[in-house]
Design a protein around this nucleic acid. Structure first.
Length: 740
DNA sequence: TTGTGGTGT
């Protein structure tokens, strides 16, 4: 293996690094080209469709030819945890080593790698975090960016997905490579040297090649001198995939009712197309999928009726919030003996576009639509149904050709590919809240205004995020990061939640706030996915743990109870309250992580700095409990105010007089018997803006009197502007928090 | 009076 010969290990073939038919993976045929290109460049742009073997083989090729590549330690990033783990397991098997030794992985909450790990699979986020934490020491130097990684080769996989972390990695890596190239000391500093490989779908490699070939182009044409710019040497290689041909069919005209059309298409495929061959139908969301399942069942019963004795249909739904067992049921192939008679028809969201592969699929039906989160601030967002991109359309169609030739039926005319669809989805960085991304960049020693983005975020978005970070005390008035900001950047939560957490450390309620922060950060609602017919029962059950202080405290009550239970009892508790055990378990992991981070120097320093810088002038009574006994939630509320003061709103209008029967000094626990239909209170954001309505799912609606002043986690735009996850606060705390 | 496309530290 140390011979330097270009070729592949015997063990790879022995352990199946080839196709089911015994042919080698396409990428292995090109190993020599890859090694040649890698040796001669700074950045290698490698294009290859799914199935060419690039994720498993490229790191091995670089490592096994180390005499020419110089690679003895390689990191490879994946967009999803599951991908990082399963690819690492595959490669460990091929190399006949135990996972976590020579081949390992690291995702959030789980690290299976060690000092001897030569091939390390990580998520994009882990690598970014690694670059941050190892960079603290180098922050002294203003000459160089602090992006520092201890690898010979850094491979960013699935780079075409363009999630936020990918874009940050691309910019940081490019800047670092250019700096090193322009720096005379670079050659002696072996620790700092690495080469970059970005791997992508074939469609868009030109954009990546252009980006890395061009000199640094800071966001707003700043005057910053970025070192003598010797351009990077960028090589480009295309590896053919091994997918089977897919015949793509389109409608003549645009389809109005695409859910109906999808159901009809599925029924028709079932009637006309040969067996075996399952159908995968892409719709935008859970509602549509549930409707389509019911419609198809109805349709098949009515039209196929008695004729259907031989060829049965299994209708499946697939979306990410579905319980893992149900997902598994949709993915599992039919037993071989019934595949000639039965057909599976799966209605899915775009979870089946990239994250989940379903064996047995030969026919794809594509509605051409998906849901996308719209809005560039943390406070305001809505999910809208929008047309997919051409790249997504190709990806969806490709799902029909994984095992044999297939057919893709598009529910839109071919011309819509160009008249309606964008070429690619807009990169996440152009449409998401930037506060956390900017914290990361600042922590890496980079001012966001000088960052070389492949696609720049909007100037307004940058401005909003900067203002927020200054308000939160993470940046000073000159936009320099301070200890508070460094601590916030080290916390795996959003900027506002992070600030509240530091506040709580100072106030002595960090443990409760760690729970709260975990709950505010987990994806999805803990009250997820209850079918309409069970919603009344769910609402009733959930009210047992509810607090009149609002949803944030109610959910915290649930979480505290959950954590206090023996792990064996937790499942039943979740079922009784119609709560997602998966979400609470994720919150538990995040909670434990926060408790650990609380001990670290960076975070402790941040909390201490908060005390010195922000609270110097504050009266000592601020933190003391009010007279009349302890009210343990009050400190927590006050700390939340410090993070979420931008999300404060005050009551605009008194409720109808019939609602005023409650005690004027109402405290937690006092609910009305039932919510009133006339309970239509409106709030106004303290910084102005449109009228806000409390989301009907809020426990606030069960109160006799609405609170005068509230905080909310987010605004949801549907039929109205609804605030979700609401907490009652005292307006006096706002003055404390904002220092006015 | 109502709603959860998909990722990630």
């Amino acid at each position: 293996m140390g011979s330097g010969a270009v070729g592949h290990r015997e063990s790879a073939a022995a352990n199946g690094a080839g196709t089911p038919t015994g042919q080698p993976l396409p990428i292995l045929v090109h190993a020599r080209d890859i090694v040649d290109a890698y040796a001669a460049c700074d950045v290698l742009v490698l294009a290859g469709e799914t199935g060419c073997g690039k994720s498993t083989q490229l790191p091995q090729i670089l490592l096994d030819n180390r005499r020419r590549t110089g690679v003895s330690r390689v990191v490879i990033t994946q967009p999803r945890r599951l991908a990082a783990i399963s690819v690492a397991a595959r490669v460990a098997h091929e190399r006949e080593c135990e996972l976590g030794t020579q081949v390992g992985y690291a995702v959030r909450f789980e690290n299976k790698s060690g000092p001897g790990t030569q091939i390390r699979y990580v998520t994009h986020g882990v690598l970014l975090r690694e670059a941050c934490s190892s960079s603290t020491a180098s922050l002294r130097s203003q000459e160089h960016s602090a992006f520092h990684l201890n690898y010979d080769a850094v491979i960013i996989d699935e780079v075409h997905e363009r999630d936020l972390n990918t874009d940050l990695l691309l910019g940081m890596a490019k800047t670092k490579l250019l700096e090193r190239k322009g720096s005379a000391v670079a050659k002696s500093d072996a620790e700092e040297s690495f080469k970059l490989v970005v791997m992508s779908a074939t469609a868009d490699i030109a954009a990546f090649t252009d980006f890395f070939s061009a000199p640094c182009r800071p966001l707003n044409g700043s005057q910053r001198q970025v070192h003598p710019q010797t351009p990077l040497v960028v090589k480009q290689l295309i590896i053919p995939g091994r997918a089977f041909p897919v015949e793509r069919l389109f409608t003549e005209e645009p389809v109005q009712e695409y859910v109906n059309a999808a159901v009809t298409a599925c029924a028709q495929i079932h009637a006309d197309e040969p067996f075996p061959g399952d159908v995968l139908c892409f719709l935008s969301g859970q509602d549509e999928i549930d409707a389509a399942c019911a419609l198809l069942k109805d349709h098949l019963e009515r039209y196929l009726g008695k004729k259907r004795t031989k060829h049965e249909v299994l209708i499946m739904a697939l979306y990410a919030t579905l319980a893992p067992e149900e997902q598994q049921r949709a993915i599992e192939p039919l037993p071989v003996e019934v595949r000639a008679q039965r057909r599976k028809i799966i209605f899915s969201t775009n979870v089946a576009e990239t994250s989940i592969t379903i064996p047995g699929v030969r026919y794809v039906v594509d509605s051409g639509m998906c849901k996308m989160r719209v809005g560039t601030s943390a406070s305001q967002s809505s999910l809208q149904i929008v047309p997919i991109s051409r790249a997504q359309a190709a990806q969806r169609a490709g799902r029909a050709g994984r095992e044999c030739a297939g057919k893709a039926f598009s529910l839109y005319p071919e011309r819509a590919l160009f008249s309606v669809m964008p070429e690619f989805e807009p990169p996440e960085i152009t449409r998401c809240d930037l506060a956390s991304a900017m914290l990361t960049l600042f922590a890496l020693g980079t001012d966001v205004r000088h960052f070389d983005f492949m696609d720049a975020p909007s100037a307004q978005g940058v401005q909003n995020a900067l203002e927020l970070l200054v308000d939160l005390g993470a940046l000073d008035e000159h936009c320099e990061m301070n200890a508070v900001g460094r601590a916030m950047a080290a916390l795996p939560v959003g900027a506002m939640v992070g600030r509240a957490f530091l506040e709580a450390m100072r106030a002595g309620c960090a443990q409760s706030m760690a729970m709260m922060a975990a709950l505010l950060s987990v994806e999805g609602n803990i009250y997820a996915s209850v079918r309409p017919e069970r919603r009344a029962a769910a609402d009733k059950a959930r009210r047992h743990e509810a607090s009149a202080l609002g949803d944030m405290i109610s959910v915290l009550n649930v979480f505290e109870k959950y954590l206090s239970l023996h792990p064996r009892e937790r499942g039943a508790y979740c079922r009784d309250l119609f709560i997602s055990a998966r979400t609470l378990n994720a919150a538990r992991a995040a909670y434990e992580q926060l408790l650990k981070l609380q001990q670290t120097r960076t975070v402790r320093q941040g909390a201490n700095a908060l005390c010195r810088d922000v609270y110097r002038a504050r009266e000592p009574s601020w933190w003391s409990e009010p007279a009349g006994g302890p009210r343990p939630r009050m400190q927590l509320q006050r700390c939340l105010v410090a993070g979420f003061s931008r999300h404060a709103a005050s009551l605009l209008e008194a409720p109808p007089s019939s609602r005023l029967s409650g005690s004027p000094n109402q405290t937690a626990g006092e609910f009305a018997v039932a919510p009133s239909s006339s309970f239509n209170v409106r709030y106004k954001g303290l910084r102005g803006g449109p009228e806000l309505f409390v989301h009907p799912s809020s426990v606030i609606h069960w109160r006799r009197r609405p609170p005068h002043c509230i905080l909310y986690q987010e605004i949801l735009i549907t039929s109205k502007l609804y605030v979700r996850n609401v907490l009652e606060i005292d307006s006096a705390w706002l003055d404390e928090a904002t220092g006015s």
